[in-house]
């Protein structure tokens, strides 16, 4: 598995897309800091970008890599290697290379602008951590989609739909249901619903750090327990891990019956 990981990783490190992605983040980091010169504001803007863009890029990258390396995968499948190891290896290769692009692409400009001396370093680290999680989650989801869909165009379609659903539509439905059932106690429901969407979950994790002042403005006791103590962060991280593990587990299941 480590060998596959290594090769996928090297392969991706040399691919044009990794550079595009890396340069995009580099550019974004510099532009943000140049325009604002205010680390805190840059961190907030960055959060909006990370929770929307990382999943999108993760899904597209995952699906694209799967379909593009299909023949190569077949070559690997004919080698004496366990199936699941091939795919987990590839998965880790993609996720790691995306994460590396993210960390370096954003890390470099922020370092140059004196992040290490700034108080924003914790916010920034959290942002990068959450971004990495999102990479791992969405590449896993993308691999699930690709494994279940033979047709490349359909696979891409589903991947984009999944992203659109989790990034926008889910929240829309969520808000509508909250407004509709206004009279009922909804705090448990809303926390619960947040857990079912990795994007929302990541957003909440960052909000716990950046906007704790506003989150504590809400009256519900459940909210207060969740946001006001360490429970919130702890639970969120736990569920984020589940969001990586569960798609991987499904991937393994799927691989047992999959024909190539």
């Amino acid at each position: 598995m480590l060998k596959i990981l290594k090769y996928s990783f090297y392969d991706l490190l040399r691919s044009r897309w990794s550079y595009v992605y890396f340069i995009f983040y580099l550019f974004l980091g510099f532009v943000l800091l140049f325009l604002n010169n205010d680390m805190n504001k840059a961190v907030i803007t960055l959060m909006n970008i990370i929770i929307v863009l990382t999943p999108l890029i993760g899904t597209i990258f995952g699906v694209m890599y799967y379909y593009n390396s299909k023949e190569f995968t077949e070559l690997l499948l004919a080698q004496p290697i366990k199936r699941s190891k091939i795919f987990i290896g590839q998965y880790l290769g993609i996720s790691l290379s995306l994460t590396l692009s993210l960390v370096l692409g954003l890390g470099i400009p922020f370092m140059i602008y004196g992040l290490s001396k700034s108080t924003a370093i914790f916010d920034f680290s959290l942002l990068i951590l959450v971004g990495s999680f999102l990479n791992f989650i969405f590449v896993a989801l993308a691999y699930n989609i690709a494994l279940s869909t033979e047709n490349k165009i359909k696979g891409f379609g589903y991947a984009i739909l999944l992203w659109l659903f989790l990034a926008v539509i889910y929240d829309g439905l969520f808000m509508i249901s909250l407004i509709t059932f206004n009279e009922y106690p909804l705090d448990k429901f809303s926390l619960f619903a947040t857990m079912f969407n990795p994007i929302d979950l990541s957003r909440i994790l960052i909000l716990l750090k950046l906007d704790i002042s506003v989150l504590l403005g809400y009256t519900g006791a459940v909210f207060k327990d969740f946001f006001g103590t360490k429970t919130g962060s702890f639970l969120s991280f736990l569920v984020l891990c589940l969001w990586v593990i569960l798609p991987l587990a499904r991937m393994k299941m799927k691989l047992r019956k999959k024909d190539f």
Partner: peptide
């Protein structure tokens, strides 16, 4: 305005949908 009416929607703060 939405948060004033339904405080629970606060969990959607800074989401893409809210921006939209």
């Amino acid at each position: 305005y939405v948060v004033n009416k339904t405080p629970e929607t606060l969990v959607l703060l800074r989401s893409l949908f809210v921006d939209i």
